[in-house]
């Protein structure tokens, strides 16, 4: 459809969540904003292929997700302090304890496989349905569900039962988190 003023407004209204998605995926504020910029350019360049009345946020998220996965990571390979850069993008600096906890969370999130991380963010933070998330990632609904479950189990293990490794093998971790092997 043509780039009407109301479509511009709708695209603009998606920018905050596109940024949040990009930062959650990449762990880096500057990189994320480049990614958002490229997403907006591509969306407008291809606006004729957007179906009026269909889900605009899902369409934009699909573009961003594909950009991130395809060429973006290959192109920008600087070694960077992801957590440090992310912290700088925060509006309000959290207290020391909260900041530590946040960094631990961020580090654990970065340890997830890409498939699981994006599924968890789309469903758990962006608020997309499993169906929309599946469409964005180009996979089956059941696949999204199992990725989200695996992401949650893995984060539990990384964040809350990591100390268990001191006492025994992986079985300890699996027992404590209730073993979601799926």
């Amino acid at each position: 459809m043509p780039l009407t003023d109301s479509l511009r407004d709708d695209i603009l209204a998606s920018v905050p969540s596109l940024r949040a998605f990009a930062i959650s995926l990449s762990g880096n504020g500057d990189r994320a904003d480049d990614l958002v910029q490229e997403t907006l350019l591509r969306a407008i360049a291809n606006i004729d292929s957007f179906q009026p009345g269909s889900n605009l946020p899902a369409w934009l998220f699909t573009i961003l997700r594909n950009l991130f996965r395809s060429d973006y990571r290959k192109r920008r390979r600087e070694v960077e302090d992801a957590e440090g850069n992310y912290a700088k993008t925060l509006k309000t600096q959290p207290s020391q304890n909260a900041h530590l906890e946040f960094e631990e969370f961020r580090t654990a999130l970065d340890k997830l496989p890409q498939d699981q991380r994006e599924a968890l963010i789309l469903v758990g933070a962006s608020g997309f349905s499993y169906e929309d998330a599946a469409a964005i990632c180009g996979c089956a609904v059941g696949t999204i569900k199992s990725r989200v479950n695996r992401a949650r189990s893995k984060l539990s293990a990384l964040l809350y039962v990591e100390g268990a490794e001191d006492f025994g093998p992986d079985e300890t971790v699996r027992a404590v988190i209730g073993g979601n092997g799926g």
Binding site: P2, L3, R8, I11, L12, V15, P16, S17, R19, A20, F21, I23, S24, D33, V36, Q37, L40, L41, R42, A43, I44, A45, N46, I47, D48, T89, L90, K91, T92, F102, F105, R106, L109, L120, I121, G124, A125, S126
Partner: peptide, 30 residues
């Protein structure tokens, strides 16, 4: 997870993106 995400959402639309979208006439410009 939501705290991390919503912190960014609350930052709103940075000027660079508002300007970018305003100044693009259409697909060709993009």
């Amino acid at each position: 997870l939501r705290a991390m995400y919503d912190d960014v959402v609350r930052q709103g639309v940075p000027d660079r993106f508002a300007e970018l979208i305003r100044k693009l006439d259409g697909p060709e410009a993009a």
